[in-house]
Amino acid sequence: MPRLPFDNDIKTLRFMAGEMTQGDLGDKVGVTRQTIAAIEQGKYSPSLEVAFRIARVFGKPLEEVFHWAETGA
């Protein structure tokens, strides 16, 4: 499976937000726990809407949650 050209800090941000679980974040964003896990692991590229929703949960701009990988495509 090709790796996504970006990574993310969702796991760290969850930890800093009172050790929020993947399920809690999924509930806030409107996706399943499995989808949050897939996004965190770089297996699934979320839609722009879900990406914005995740960033809004943490009160961060999008580029502080998702980072374009310099070595990526």
């Binding site: 409107g30 996706v31 399943t32 499995q34 989808t35 897939a38 699934y44 979320p46 839609s47 879900v50």
Partner: peptide
């Protein structure tokens, strides 16, 4: 009861 999300 969880609704199907975009990945699913």
């Amino acid at each position: 009861n969880i609704k199907e999300d975009e990945r699913e």
